[in-house]
Amino acid sequence: MIYAIASGKGGTGKTTVAASLLSLWDRPVTAIDLDVEEPNLHLFLNPEFDSVEKAYIEVPEVDESKCTLCGACTELCQFKAISIMASTLLVFPEMCHGCGGCLAVCPEKALSPSQRELGEICLGKSGDIRFIMGKLRIGEAMSPPLMRQVKERFITHDSEEDIIVDAPPGVSCPAVSAVIDTDCIVLVTEPTPFGFHDFKLAWEAFSPFGKPMGAVINRAGIGDDTVNRFCKEKGIPIWAEIPYDRAIAEAYSRGAVVAEAVESLQETFHELRRNMRKATETSREMNNA
């Protein structure tokens, strides 16, 4: 099963929850950090990386001797990544989405595949947890292509091994890309106006996928009860509440996995794990029935 730890708002505790769940999840288990712009899970699980691979996206390269400036490629490109200026075909590799259209449409075979670096895919282990992380190159604008390549490392796998995905914040393209291929979505939020607003956005964005989804309310006790009331009204199960406690914030600031550092939270995370498993199994049975 693949479990996504997501949230509309950043900084609500996705990584805290993911790291804690991983610490007590049944083995074997794999951790995937898909927040490729700002991956943080490794800071808490301290994996040893035995392979760091560069990831690339295909971009076109022009052979000027073959190009007749017919304009078929520039007309097709939707991303302004290729254009004719003063009788020269220019490629702007940073704009390219790697669709391959220009190469396919060129009647002269004047374009050939080159590449742009997207970032790195880091593979390793944290104790007995397999660890995969995508890390976007600083200056690279597009995170979904790198996320796709990280995802290819795990969505094809057919073993029974569980996977926990730390997703990027938000509800737009990168966040959707992170949760769309998973079996269960955990939405981490906090009971504040910002937390609630973005929780609602995320719930609306992810509901159409029909996956089992539950809430984790972090820093419970601050703010107000709007999130709880909303969950009750919409029938969204609250799978765990992590109380507001400065000791938790301080443990996190030292890089600790809070389920390990704060004993009272052990049972909270075990309960969360049971709820996630149960909801996913129930949903699978219903789909098979």
């Binding site: 950043g10 900084g11 700002e38 976007l136 604008a141």
Partner: peptide, 10 residues
């Protein structure tokens, strides 16, 4: 601004 270092931040 937005979180991250990708498209909207750039």
């Amino acid at each position: 601004g937005a979180p991250g270092i990708g498209c909207p931040v750039i």
